[in-house]
Design a protein around this nucleic acid. Structure first.
Lengths: 107, 107
DNA sequence: CCACCATAGTACGGTCGCCGATGTATAAGC
DNA sequence: GCTTATACATCGGCGACCGTACTATGGTGG
């Protein structure tokens, strides 16, 4: 799993969001690092629905603009956690190899 | 940076290794998760040399088989650390969102 | 003795996710 | 009334990864 996909799934953990809101939340969660463009965002959402990691929760119409809300499935939650574990293992490998990392700038 | 590339760089942190040895070390460091196939391995090594993250250290001939040793550059070390920091941030985002992860199986 | 396997590297083609770009549509702001 | 922000769709291209096949050598097993 790549980073954009990962943050999309994380963004949807708490509650269903529509596409544009997913992008905003992903940017927040990544401290501004992950800025999802339309191509990445909607492409990934479609793919994740196909894979059963997301489902379409509902569609609304707000001020003429339609909003499609996505909800994460159990499979999606599971994949997210598996990915996080993979990241942790990769991080531990770095710590064991190159030593402790510098402190992060306090968020 | 993708995971295979990351573990290739980690594998070369301590000392120069030849291609095949890089693959073995990467598998070790990843607890067996990352098994580099020939296509991925040599493609990535060439690319990393092009990018200045690795240099060819020397070439030996052992039992008729040539071995090409790669050494990581400062740029490569820097990229590795930057990647590890990125991973940590992604992991922290998960912790903040879905809560603490289960304990890893003791290595 | 011959097949197989591990080592070591080269080469090629395909796939998949990401990304930029473009287009549609509406409502708000200047 | 033109631009900007919101919201989504689609298309094409690229790059990293990966499978596969090939060359080559030396050790192991049937």
């Amino acid at each position: 799993m790549r980073e954009p996909t990962y943050f999309i799934l994380l963004a949807l953990h708490a509650e269903p969001l529509h596409g544009y809101a997913v992008a905003s939340r992903a940017k927040e969660l990544s401290d501004g690092r992950v800025e999802l463009t339309a191509g990445t965002l909607y492409g990934a959402l479609d793919r994740l629905v196909d894979e059963g990691q997301l489902v379409v929760d509902r569609e609304e119409k707000v001020n003429g603009r339609k909003r499609r809300y996505y909800r994460i499935t159990e499979a999606g939650e599971h994949a997210t956690q598996a990915e996080a574990l993979r990241l942790r293992q990769a991080l531990e490998a770095a710590a064991a190899t190159i030593g402790p990392l510098p402190k992060a700038a306090t968020a």
